[in-house]
Amino acid sequence: MGRFLLKRLGLAAITLFLLSVIVFFGTQVLPGNVGRRILGPFADQSAVDALNERLGTDRGLLTQYWDWLTGLFTGDFGTSLAQNVPVTELMGNALVNSLKLAAFAFVLVVPLAIFGGVVAALRRDRLTDRIITIGGLSLSVVPEFVSGIILILVFGLWLDLLPVSARAPAGASIPTQLEYLLLPALTLVILLFGYIARITRAGTIEALDADYTRTAVLKGLPRRTVLKRHVLRNSLLPTIAVVATQTGYLIGGLVVVETLFNYPGMGRLIFTAATQKDVPVLEAAVLVVGTIFLIAMLFADLLYSLLNPRIRYSGTE
């Protein structure tokens, strides 16, 4: 187990390093430069040059990258080129916001989708199954800006039940914060429900059809026990993997949802940094999201082994 973890951590470090290289040099492919992005198209070239010199973005790419990398190892994430504040300050808020929204969306969607998937599997090919699978799939293909706008129009403006933006006033209590987060979280539920439910349904059906389930039924175990001990345990394995792969998206990819509900999270931070070529912010944010993603994947793997002792992480391949 120890060796397994060590190996995974090593691989994670390499992945993150490659990610940083891709992000850094990837942004350089985009036209324009930081000074031009900050001062706008109408600024004098000499002013742009002066600003690039001040920001250090006129230096060679490798020098810039090396400086950034060495800074990182001393715990210095650097300063935002566009906002002139420490990257940690800019990112701290956004990360907390993103984690809140992601956690809330997870708490809503995961039990709901698993329940839906299991019900659909148990009522396979009947009306309930059709409603859950086809309904869920139809909702998943609705882009988030459409479902988000409909939710805003219906619950925010027409019925006037919920706030139209996700950001609660400063110092709001947790229930108030959740009230503000409900519409964006529901947008994500709509997006993810069908997908997760479908995977759960498939896993459950496979488990229901498996020999061990038949054995369990034949040896006279109550249906409830069969479901809990034999079916769910196995059917949830693919679901866990799918849920884990969604963390990266939920933490760092919600550009549309965050924009629509004016919620300053990691998605918008990354998007803004990318358009402004604010490399220190972009690098830090992508690495943080990448780290969270890798941790989630690791967590999913560990959960796998816990639920299914047949999978062993012996370290001997």
Partner: peptide, 12 residues
């Protein structure tokens, strides 16, 4: 970041 949420914010 964009206009649409500003307009909704005024309406809401």
């Amino acid at each position: 970041a964009e206009e649409a949420p500003m307009i909704v914010a005024l309406q809401g």
